[in-house]
């Protein structure tokens, strides 16, 4: 009997190893496809720029962007700050706004989804805030807080807060009735069930919300920096336009894209850690 179950669990492990191997293979394939996609895109871009298909006033060659990238690492001209400073300034704004949105939006959504009374209390306020486009807060925050970090962080906050709240709210609402009953029969209090059953059940959608939120935060950041800033990637793009420097504009866009990618990969990693049970 013991022997039997041992071989059974061994077989199980072998099976899991095989599946993981196959999964790794598809992962490698996917990465290669993605890399060749990017290379192809850059190639077409280069051809379009070199062949004169597109007026060189409107487009810069990929290599020029790489050059400018290196130059901008140390040269504050023409927008007044080196690339690193712009990146840090943008990150500071977006991460503080986004972080605040997650820190407030997610728990608020979870509590509203679980406690009906709290939901009734909060809902009207939320329903009023929800449809307001985040950028329409910009003039008000300039009046209140000037054009510093705080003002922009608040705009980013509004953009990221809504998806955080809605998704964790919906997620916890979908908690299985049976699982709640399981916890009840174990003698759990409502708050314990909220923590042990509700929150884990809500995690999948919560992460979906956080991903939407980071996208929103990043997008809104650029808009905010174009209107109210003295540094940052959005500001750099704006200056590029004013000085007629298409290469600077494109560099800004590329850097924004690259950082966005890195951040969403980081969130994916965190998600894998929390929702790792779904894989395997």
């Amino acid at each position: 009997m013991a022997q039997n179950t041992k071989t059974r669990s061994n077989q199980n492990n072998e099976r899991i190893a095989l599946i993981q191997k196959q999964r790794k293979r598809t992962q490698v394939q996917n990465t290669m496809l993605a890399a060749s996609g990017i290379l192809g895109f850059i190639l077409i871009w280069q051809i379009a720029a070199v062949s004169g298909l597109v007026n060189s006033r409107y487009i810069a060659k990929p290599l020029e962007i790489v050059n400018l990238f290196i130059v901008k690492l140390t040269d504050p001209n023409p927008d007044g700050a080196v690339l690193g400073v712009n990146v840090m300034s943008s990150l500071a704004v977006s991460l503080s706004g986004f972080g605040l949105a997650v820190l407030i939006g997610v728990p608020l959504g979870l509590f509203m989804g679980w406690y009906r009374g709290f939901d009734s209390f909060m809902r009207p306020i939320f329903e009023i805030i929800r449809p307001i486009p985040p950028v329409s807060w910009i003039p008000l925050t300039i009046v209140w807080l000037g054009i510093g970090l705080k003002a922009k962080a608040i705009i980013v906050f509004f953009a990221a807060f809504v998806p955080c709240l809605i998704n964790s709210y919906t997620g916890i609402k979908q908690t299985s009735e049976v699982l709640i009953n399981v916890a009840k029969t174990c003698g759990a209090s409502n708050f314990t069930i909220f923590r042990k059953v509700g929150i884990p059940s809500a995690m999948t959608l919560t992460f979906a919300g956080i991903k939407v939120a980071i996208g929103n935060a990043w997008a809104t950041l650029v808009a905010a920096e174009m209107l109210a800033a003295s540094s940052g990637l959005g500001y750099m793009i704006l200056m590029g336009r004013q000085f007629g420097r298409v290469d600077l504009v494109i560099l800004g866009i590329v850097v924004i894209g690259a950082i966005g990618l890195v951040i969403s990969k980081l969130i994916d990693m965190l998600e894998n850690k929390v929702l790792g049970w779904k894989k395997l």
Partner: peptide, 11 residues
């Protein structure tokens, strides 16, 4: 209690 279905915590 033992329930009919979907009663295990998937996480």
């Amino acid at each position: 209690m033992v329930f009919q279905r979907l009663a295990l915590m998937p996480w």
